[in-house]
Simulated assay, not measured.
Amino acid sequence: MHQLQLTKPDGRRLTLYSRRPIDTGLQAPSPFAEPLHPNPHLRWHPLRGEWVAYAAHRQDRTFLPPPEYNPLAVTSDPEHPTELPAGDWDVAVFDNRFPSLTAAAHDAPLSTVPTAIGNGHCEVVVFTQDPSSSLGRLPVEHLALLIEVWGDRCRHLGQQHDIAYVLPFENRGKEVGVTLHHPHGQIYAYPEVPPVPRRMGEQQAAHLAEHGRGLLETMIEREIADHARRLLYLGELAVAWVPACARYPYEVWVATRRPVARFEQLCDADRLDLARALKTVLLKYDGLWQRPMPYLMAWYSAPSQGDHPGWHLHAQLWPPYRTPDKLKVLAGTELAAGWFAVDALPEDKAAELQAVPVELDR
């Protein structure tokens, strides 16, 4: 993997990644000449025992512009720069101009609940220069590079003393709130481990202490042994499946077969097989609907600081659909109680996805 680190005119950082050497003469453009100086803050939710981030400046971020004003396209006219330079690169990562968390946050306002400065970091990950492509249409080797990029960013951000957890994710489709159609994702670096991965870590540690082996490792072996009823991809090193406990129709998990806690512990072969597994899932999504399938994808790795026995790197994908023409939205029991009610069996939805033929490029 080759990379080139640059600085934008407004002070934000840009890193270009490629499978080939990158021209060191490239310059980092920006649609903005001056820094924004965002100042998010946190407020404590006493009943839930968790922080809520407030970043009012995000109301001004770019929202579904026409193609000619795509800020994630490469710059073609220096008089009207975008976020990215023209050149031979595959993946780009830059500081989000409209972050929910930032290391520059200061002076949290007083309130009737405890408050704190919104420390952290937010990055935008542009998957490809092609605005008409998608994650599932990228070559396997490109996806393997992206997985390596996620690892590099998680390692870099996780080394900062005030960062406890790093989460790469993608929102795809306006149905799940995307504001730019160009294939991209985000990375959030949090000052403490958020509630969802914190609980995952607790469950994995408890299972390891009781059974002497990892929780996801056990789940994967059970899925394989259960006549592969919910498996979508089974490779030598990676696997993708509809979990028996899926909370959403068509929910899919992707993981290495051996326990790997963090991206940086993956080898080249691991990344390639994970790329095949992920591409298989995304092609099945689009093939089932015969159109781009909206989803939210998050990659869960171990917290940045310290040792966390039992952690198993994996992705979870949640499409919002029950059927091709009906959305699954969070309703009373899910939002109010956190108790999901699903009107579709995981086995039935797995069978639908299994029936979609997929051809990988390698």
Results as ranks from 00 to 15, higher is better:
L234S: 06
L266I: 07
H182G: 10
R229W: 09
H57E: 12
D162E: 13
H314G: 04
R257Q: 04
V93P: 08
Y190I: 08
L145N: 04
L146C: 11
N96L: 05
M219K: 13
N171A: 14
G310V: 00
P195C: 03
W44L: 08
L145M: 08
P346I: 08
F98N: 06
R213I: 01
P357H: 13
A55F: 11
L353M: 14
R322N: 14
R155T: 15
E192Q: 14
L237C: 01
H211A: 03
V252W: 06
W253Q: 06
V140G: 02
P65L: 13
L135A: 09
H227W: 07
R20L: 06
Y285A: 04
L26P: 07
S304Y: 02
I224E: 11
W299K: 05
T179P: 03
A103H: 13
D270R: 00
I163P: 00
A246H: 01
T256V: 03
A302E: 01
A228V: 10
E141S: 12
D162S: 10
P29N: 08
H80T: 11
A108T: 09
R271K: 07
V281H: 00
P35N: 05
G338F: 02
A205D: 02
G287Q: 09
A336M: 15
S301N: 09
A205K: 04
A144G: 11
Q354V: 14
I187K: 07
V93C: 06
L145T: 06
P114D: 08
V126Y: 09
E50S: 12
I117K: 11
R222G: 08
W44G: 02
Y300N: 07
Y188I: 09
H161M: 05
P292L: 06
T115A: 04
E347M: 08
Y188W: 13
V124I: 15
L335Q: 15
L143R: 03
H312E: 00
K326R: 15
P292W: 02
A240H: 02
G173I: 09
K279C: 10
S111M: 07
K326Q: 15
Q265T: 01
W253V: 00
A206V: 05
V329K: 14
R276H: 09
H57L: 14
V93L: 02
G310D: 02
T128F: 03
L278R: 02
L145V: 06
V178T: 15
M1P: 12
A108H: 10
E79V: 05
S100D: 01
A225P: 03
L208W: 01
L266Y: 00
T323E: 15
R20P: 05
Y285R: 04
A164H: 13
V91I: 12
S30C: 06
